[in-house]
Amino acid sequence: MKQVNPPAAATWLLEHMTKNDALAGDLFEGYRHGRSAGWYWRQVMAALAIRFAEGLGDRWPAVVFAALWSAMPFPWWWGFVVRHEDILTGYVVVFPWPYSMICFLALSIASAVAFVWLGLAVCLLFGCLKRTVRRPRVLRALRASLLIFVPLQFGVVLLSLSAARINQELLLVFSHFCFFVPLLVSAWLGLPAAGGAASSPAPS
């Protein structure tokens, strides 16, 4: 038997990711007038894809910047450090285990976070030259970068500690990815849209 209301998960995604109330209402109405749950899901997925594509178009400087910054020498330097552990661990090896390991993880993640924030600062500085970058946006960007980057970086460090068992090239690609994604998300959140496009429609 068909449910009276459309799938809740799809509605939640639609309301939170597109913020288009009129579209949500139209889909609700279509579902109530006999459309299937499959139709509803397809429409929601298409709306999300379109929203994402529009966002990429509006915020292409953020995409370019994230790609450039994540290709900077830091990942290579970090890979070098991890491969020659004595350079970094020499400073923390004085502590007994597990404190030495905790210090090592904290130090490596903190230095990587500093690299991401430096990139974000440069990005927002460029953004300031062109448009207004407001404080709530900056805070949201910093928060997002931490929330996404720290778990990813934790994974990179753990993987690199077991470097003998994994492919080094794969580790490097994963490391780039771990810099690219948080930079993209935080720059996306930090910079206003290039075309001045609103995130939700503004009816006259």
């Binding site: 397809r42 709306a47 379109i50």
Partner: peptide, 23 residues
């Protein structure tokens, strides 16, 4: 037709001044 693409096109048309909308 995807309703999302219709809304995206209508938004673009509104920015160009070819349609107007009201809630």
């Amino acid at each position: 037709v995807s309703l999302g693409s219709v809304y995206a096109a209508l938004d673009r048309l509104e920015k160009k001044g070819f349609v107007s909308s009201a809630l």
